[in-house]
Simulated assay, not measured.
Amino acid sequence: MARASLNGVVLAESAAVETVEGTLYFPRETVRLEHLEPRATRTVCPWRGVATYYDVRVGDRVEPAAAWSYEAPKRRARRLEGAVAFWKGIDVEP
């Protein structure tokens, strides 16, 4: 069971994560979306597409752009559609 957490608060937990280039992507339905705040940041991956970023908030602690998702990935990355990945200050356990 993979888990992402911040300050002891579980943000996502699933046995059905996708692993791509060492990054775990959690199915959206396993993510506590109330901790994600959309931001304008976008990046482009040549084979995955456009990533949408989120600030992660637990109480007063905010980790800026610490989660991202591919809402409309390219064909080769279709399995990541809507899944959420975490980094930068978020504890992710495989």
Rank of each mutant, 00 (worst) to 15 (best):
A66R: 05
R61P: 09
G8L: 07
R79D: 14
R48W: 06
T41V: 08
P27G: 11
T30E: 09
S69Q: 01
P64D: 08
V10C: 13
P94T: 00
W68T: 01
R61E: 15
K88E: 08
S5M: 08
R61C: 13
V10I: 15
A51E: 03
R57L: 11
A15S: 14
A83I: 00
R75M: 13
A67T: 07
R3M: 05
M1T: 08
A4Y: 05
N7Q: 14
Y53M: 06
R42H: 10
V84E: 01
M1S: 05
R78E: 15
L24Q: 00
A51V: 03
V50D: 08
T43G: 12
P94F: 03
E13V: 01
F26A: 06
I90T: 00
T23M: 12
L11Q: 08
A85I: 04
D91K: 04
V92K: 01
T52V: 13
A15Q: 14
A65C: 13
P94Y: 02
V56Y: 09
L11T: 12
E71M: 07
V84A: 05
R76F: 12
W87T: 00
A12Y: 01
R57E: 12
A85S: 06
V31Y: 06
A77D: 08
P27Y: 10
A67D: 09
E29C: 11
E29F: 10
E21P: 06
R57Q: 13
L6T: 09
W68H: 03
L24S: 03
K74P: 12
R48P: 06
S5V: 03
V84T: 03
R78K: 14
R32I: 10
V20G: 07
F26N: 06
A85E: 00
N7W: 09
V50H: 10
T19P: 11
W47I: 14
V44E: 12
A16Q: 15
K88W: 07
A12I: 01
P94Q: 01
A65E: 15
V92D: 00
G89F: 06
S69W: 03
T19H: 12
V92I: 05
A16E: 15
R57H: 12
P94D: 00
Y25F: 12
E21C: 09
N7R: 14
R76K: 15
E93T: 02
T19E: 15
G8Q: 08
A66G: 11
R79H: 15
M1L: 07
P27R: 12
E18R: 13
V56W: 10
V9I: 11
T43D: 11
V10M: 10
E37D: 14
R3G: 02
G8V: 06
V17W: 02
V84K: 00
R57V: 09
G82K: 02
G82S: 02
K74T: 14
V17H: 02
Y70R: 02
W68N: 04
E34D: 09
A77G: 11
L24D: 01
E34M: 07
